[in-house]
């Protein structure tokens, strides 16, 4: 009896062995993998150059839930150079290099020179979720490139960070054109805006909610700008220092505005001049920026506005602003006016 049991046990073990053998069928060959990789590399090389207005990477800050921060990249595929524009600031000469590298795990899109991407990797996560300047390329199609940060953070974090789906820059994104629409550094931009009372009306597209804010511009940092520039989180951090020294100004705000221009303001968030954009990411070194900006960003649900149009009619100034979601769709549209 015992023997029978033993033998049948043994036989069933054998059966298991064979059964598992059969399952272990790898259908993909090495040649196929190499082939897919080669195809992807070719596709990527072609597709990168096929959007003359560039590709957009939407970076998520820990400070906002829906609004994401756009980085527009124009690839020069003949010289492997890339130009980037973003709301964080302006970049001198705006030039950096990129490479398409190969690893065993696949094709890599490598922003190999110092750029906005390597700079963001160095910043804390309120500036964005970029954790590497080398990305694994996950998928390439004519209108989308899916990439993933190779590292996910510190040395002992697992490989593979945030996944981004790059899309072609929409034509409606006038802010990302080469024309400067608003640069508060300049005297001409300050006309009609600096120390002038105004109103900012925001429309939240998903909920159709409308919000009015008392809003103004104040160049209070101009007198000792150089000293303030020393606390610029990008500038004082050599590894992230790829932007122009920042230009900052106050945007006094009144949260309880009733729809017409008023003269009182409740708080003074600090704006940083981005590329045709206003950026409200807090930075240590300025108390107002740390507290007022945090409150402002939370209240308006975005850490930035891009400026798509500036209309000047005599002394009347209208500025059309927007903020985008992860897919690049308008999440907030808004209009600033210095007249009722």
């Amino acid at each position: 009896m015992k023997n029978i049991l033993k033998i049948s046990g043994f036989l069933s073990l054998l059966l298991l062995l064979f059964a598992s053998c059969e399952k272990d069928n790898i259908t993909t060959t090495v040649e196929e993998l190499v082939g897919t990789e080669k195809q992807m590399e070719t596709d990527l090389k072609q597709v990168l150059g096929k959007s003359p207005n560039g590709w957009v990477m939407m970076v998520k800050s820990t400070l906002a839930d829906t609004a994401c921060i756009p980085v527009v990249m124009q690839f020069d595929t003949t010289k492997n150079m890339v130009k980037m524009k973003s709301v964080y600031g302006t970049t001198p000469n705006n030039k950096s290099t990129y490479l398409i590298n190969k690893g065993v795990s696949g094709i890599l899109l490598n922003f190999s020179g110092g750029s906005i991407v390597s700079s963001l990797m160095r910043m804390d996560r309120s500036y964005g979720d970029v954790t590497d300047y080398v990305f694994k390329v996950l998928a390439v199609s004519s209108d989308a490139i899916k990439i993933q940060c190779l590292k996910s953070g510190e040395a002992y974090k697992q490989e593979g960070g945030q996944v981004y789906t790059l899309f072609k820059r929409p034509d409606s994104w006038k802010w990302a054109d080469d024309v400067t629409l608003l640069d508060m550094k300049t005297a001409e931009a300050k006309v009609g805006l600096n120390n002038v009372n105004g109103i900012l009306t925001l429309n939240y597209i998903p909920t159709s909610k409308k919000v009015n804010l008392g809003f103004s511009f104040r160049n209070s940092f101009d007198s000792n700008l150089a000293a303030w520039q020393a606390v610029d989180p990008f500038y004082n951090n050599a590894s992230a220092n790829v932007f122009d020294k920042f230009y900052i100004f106050f945007n006094p705000v009144n949260y309880s505005n009733t729809g017409t221009i008023q003269t009182v303001y409740e708080d003074t968030p600090v704006a940083r001049q981005g590329y045709n954009a206003l950026c409200y990411l807090p930075f240590s070194g300025n108390a107002s920026s740390s507290t007022s900006n945090a409150k402002f960003v939370k209240s308006i649900k975005t850490p930035y506005f891009v400026i798509n149009e500036v209309i000047r009619n005599g002394t009347n100034v209208t500025i059309k602003v927007a903020s985008y979601d992860k897919t690049g769709k308008e999440y907030i549209t808004g209009e600033y006016k210095n007249f009722n």
Binding site: T97, L99, N110, S112, R122, V134, S239, N241
Partner: peptide, 23 residues
């Protein structure tokens, strides 16, 4: 070397490539 590739940099360390013009 002014451009970094993954095989250039020790995986446990963090170096950031220089901006093109400055390099």
């Amino acid at each position: 070397v002014y451009e970094y590739t993954p095989q250039m940099i020790r995986p446990n360390d963090f170096y950031y490539p220089p901006a093109y013009d400055k390099a």
